[in-house]
Design a protein around this nucleic acid. Sequence first.
DNA 1: CTGAAAGCGCTTACAG
DNA 2: CTGAAAGCGCTTACAG
Lengths: 338, 338
Amino acid sequence: MTVSRVLADPSIVAPETRERVMRAVEQLGYVPDLVAGSLSSRRTNFVGLILPTLTNSNFADTSQGLAEALGQSYQLLIGYTLYDTGEEERLVRSLLARRPQGLVVAGTLHTAATRRMLMNAGIPIVEIWDAPSAPLDRAVGFSNFEAGRAAARHLLSLGLRRLAAIGSEADKDPHDARGEARLQGFAAMLKEEGIGTGRILRHGSAPVSYAHGAAAMRVLLKEMPDVEGVFAVSDGSAFGALMECRRQGVEVPGRVSIMGFGDFELGRECEPAISTIRVDAKGIGTRTGLLLRDLFEGRGQETPPSIDLGIEVVPRGTTAGTGRSHDRNQTSSEGRRS
Amino acid sequence: MTVSRVLADPSIVAPETRERVMRAVEQLGYVPDLVAGSLSSRRTNFVGLILPTLTNSNFADTSQGLAEALGQSYQLLIGYTLYDTGEEERLVRSLLARRPQGLVVAGTLHTAATRRMLMNAGIPIVEIWDAPSAPLDRAVGFSNFEAGRAAARHLLSLGLRRLAAIGSEADKDPHDARGEARLQGFAAMLKEEGIGTGRILRHGSAPVSYAHGAAAMRVLLKEMPDVEGVFAVSDGSAFGALMECRRQGVEVPGRVSIMGFGDFELGRECEPAISTIRVDAKGIGTRTGLLLRDLFEGRGQETPPSIDLGIEVVPRGTTAGTGRSHDRNQTSSEGRRS
DNA sequence: CTGAAAGCGCTTACAG
DNA sequence: CTGAAAGCGCTTACAG
């Protein structure tokens, strides 16, 4: 028990004893067993993290941010759902069995059993990558619906009128609820402007990436050859669409403007650079980590349950005006909302 | 203890008792505490995974493969080193404290303390993403040196002679030992062919990605304007180099051929598609997972300590011959080695 | 087939 | 400032 004290807080042990213990630890290569420690102290220092996939630079950034903000004393327990609600339920159950002190979920959060388990877990639950007004417990994110609206508003502000959006199928099981919210925001904005809903193309299943964007663009160019502006629900998909245009000799942004989402490094480094909606992916992780540490230490009760980190429109090389812009709305940025 | 039996193996409990237990479990929402279970059974069912970074699609693929092969009963404990050996040591120590049953390391594996801890851990250690002839314990990967040689051989076979390779600085801490091995293999091949070592440009620090490739290419085009072929140590870097060429109006592959490494989805979907060296990133994870399960169950002792999954040259749109190809070596594939 | 006992390796009070 | 005792919630033999 004295060893335990030396390792936990050396200052409360007499210098001479401390030295003796340290020497023994060194010689034996003693590494304390945190499994036993966790059981005894009822603190595992685990934080569970549930993501749809890790092959998405945004989610990778979020988990890096979370790991950094939690610091060395907490260990992340990561699981992937592949956008499947059944898999998510299995994952929540097995993570909870490890007795994490908090659970961070960017999954689809669907089955009733999942919700019940989360509610009854007795630990802080943080839903990330969306900012619902009434989260299960807490939320850190932004409004995906607003992101879709902002994309539409930007394309409209350039004078473009024949618009489309590409995402994945919404009513199947793997499915991407956040991407769907962006599509709906996009359609809603067009409706507000009284120009129909545009063409909302739900193609293939989540997760969407390069190949998805290329395939969807191929379909779109065939069925709507005069399309002027396209919003893809992720930068990966936007990149695929851009490459498909290049293959078909369709000029971007000359003939069609393309707008992505997520501000991936890929889009910044691409030539032309991809116009996008920036979200602070790493910041979502960092903010979540800080919130959890507060909650673990009994602080943070006054933090609002839903934290909205906002979005920002970033116009770059893949969008351009038609010349006939009769724009009422010239803003290129949503700014920060909270 | 009967509850424990029902949950572990229902068949050994009388049907009636079993039913009673199941009903109670259901009603109470009982989730067994694996922390206590682990301590008692001395099996945590944890597998530690140490990666340089998750923001690299290859490593993300490897971890997905590993997770799938290990299956539901094992939980991955993931840590990032950011290519820093000190961070790696800290990570190994804290992972070992969780008493994993196996440890998978794609880190840089540098400090003496790290090696000592790994040797004394008493669990299977699998080094991945390289296949050294004498691993610490076991290894699953391929030869990075051979990958570099293969890249050089491919560029030479196209008749290109003014060659260069771009990677990151080798003698600092963060540094990428596997990327460096590729550079050295590249230089070695050129030497074998008696045409010097080419220009080996070690620029910036690991990890290398899009922006790195662009910056390195900028430097290279300035100091070696007549360069004919470039090997980048990752497809991310190759993509950045390709974009930089486009910005500067340098035709690829017309004026300069570019070759990457890793066969990222990005390179396949890019236009022109990036010539690369394919490694089976997900397969490395899968193979490692299967090996670990064998070892956990007392099998797999006869498996060779070092498993080489081989590499394959994949010529695509960013490399083309000069016309003056006096190639002795037309092979476009390394095939599978073991 | 089921239950009582011991113990996994720590931490947390509690004495001294 | 340091040590002896109890206990965290399971699993593993061992009896019955």
